[in-house]
Design a protein around this nucleic acid. Structure first.
Lengths: 155, 155
DNA sequence: TATAATTACCCATAATTACCCACAAATCTA
DNA sequence: TAGATTTGTGGGTAATTATGGGTAATTATA
């Protein structure tokens, strides 16, 4: 995944064909690494869309499949849920991707509406502006959240 | 099995000849690896159909025969269940396969009805839309499932 | 072996998608 | 500041995809 450093927040429109623009700075990074394909998927919180540049997706996928067994029912269910809402997109020559109706519905994103793209270092999130606002109001990081994070060898 | 990365969920119709389309992206992957044959079989959960590209089937089969003992009754039963309902299909020139009446019945898939194909990375599942909905309602991944997954060296 | 049923192979078509071009707004450069 | 370039957005068209159905070849059945 090299040196992707997706940061910031961008406002774009969803056109009549359900296309969204990918921030040009992100595109440049991906270009330098010859990546023109991403995988969009349901975010773990389900009310937004995750966008993984292909190499990032592959490592994610491999980590998950490596520890999963096909004969294990829970594992099968997890893989299914994990891949079910994931779909490969190729950036068009204008640097856009086309969202799927199902993911749009999950995220509350509407045709001819708007969307916010947020950089998450090595992947992105696509939010409906309203949903994002709600999320920010409802789930600020608490002191106890930070305490939990302190226990990880993070920062 | 190379680099198959079957993801996503697709809705297709079952025609009067019990044919289903295989998603074109999956076909492309198989084509690149010169695979035009799959094995359809009863899924381990029994209420859907598994579709294995031939090479995947072969490795699965070999793993099973290598670790199973014919003198063990449970093993025999497993092998029987595993192969009994497995049947080889060749994709037609339109990229479709023909399902067998027996597997269709097991999965609740009806002639002239609909079916959902789900990518499972290196194989696929075919579901009756109703059965899938039921399954999703009955077996959602819980918070505790996710907590268990967090303990894996995953993400 | 003759006949019926099934399957493989082919062609046709509507809907969808990928690809291309265009242009206005914003940003950069000299 | 003026011109050039980049960026975001819209839309037209060719190509692909999903689906239906006809017919010859194959298989099963009596």
């Amino acid at each position: 995944m090299g040196y992707s450093d997706f940061t910031g927040e961008f406002n774009y429109s969803i056109d009549s064909k359900n296309r969204v623009n990918i921030p040009s700075r992100y595109r440049k990074t991906m270009n330098e690494e010859n990546v023109c394909e991403v995988v969009i998927s349901k975010g773990f919180d389900s009310n937004h869309i995750d966008v993984y540049p292909l190499p990032k997706w592959i490592t994610l996928r491999d980590k998950i499949t490596a520890s999963m067994q096909l004969v294990n029912r829970v594992h099968r269910n997890f893989i299914r849920q994990f891949t079910q809402n994931a779909s490969h997109c190729t950036l068009d020559s204008q640097g856009r991707i086309m969202l799927t109706p199902k993911l749009m519905e999950m995220a509350g994103i509407k045709t001819n509406g708007n969307a916010v793209i947020i950089g998450m270092i090595d992947f992105m999130e696509i939010w409906d502006p309203e949903e994002l606002k709600k999320h920010e109001e409802n789930t600020p990081l608490t002191d106890s959240d930070f305490e939990k994070l302190e226990q990880l060898p993070l920062i």
